[in-house]
């Protein structure tokens, strides 16, 4: 499944999707950035409620396929434009991290 396929699900809203063809091979949930960098795998969807600018750097360095903001967390425009620039896909969902992971599990 690609990030584009994920974006077709009405539960997930695209905030920015500069690289829609990125493959999704799993999910990692976490809000402590160093923890995420230590554990998230290449091509994971990273579900988080953190939305500061450092999230973009962590997503880029960990090479996750997209960031999924749970609980309808929003992003500042500055963060959004940095994400676009760095080629980081960001989606949001009204679901909790738990429910989003269940939904993703059925799709992957």
């Amino acid at each position: 499944m690609t990030v584009y396929d994920l974006s077709k699900n009405s539960q997930f809203n695209v905030l920015t999707m500069p690289e829609p063809e990125r493959e999704i091979n799993g999910v990692y949930i976490g809000d402590l950035l160093s923890w995420v960098m230590g554990k998230a795998q290449y091509d994971n969807v990273w579900i988080t409620i953190m939305s500061n600018i450092n999230v973009i750097a962590v997503a880029s360095l960990s090479d996750v396929s997209c960031v999924l903001l749970a609980e309808d967390v929003t992003l500042d425009n500055e963060v959004l434009s940095t994400a676009k620039q760095k080629g980081i896909n960001i989606l949001s969902t009204p679901m909790s991290a738990y429910d989003a992971a269940i939904e993703l599990s059925g799709m992957i």
């Binding site: 809000d31 402590l32 160093s34 923890w35």
Partner: peptide, 15 residues
Amino acid sequence: SLGFGAGMGLPNMKR
């Protein structure tokens, strides 16, 4: 509050 300071920085660098 920014998501850092979990005490994982140096261990990650080593890992």
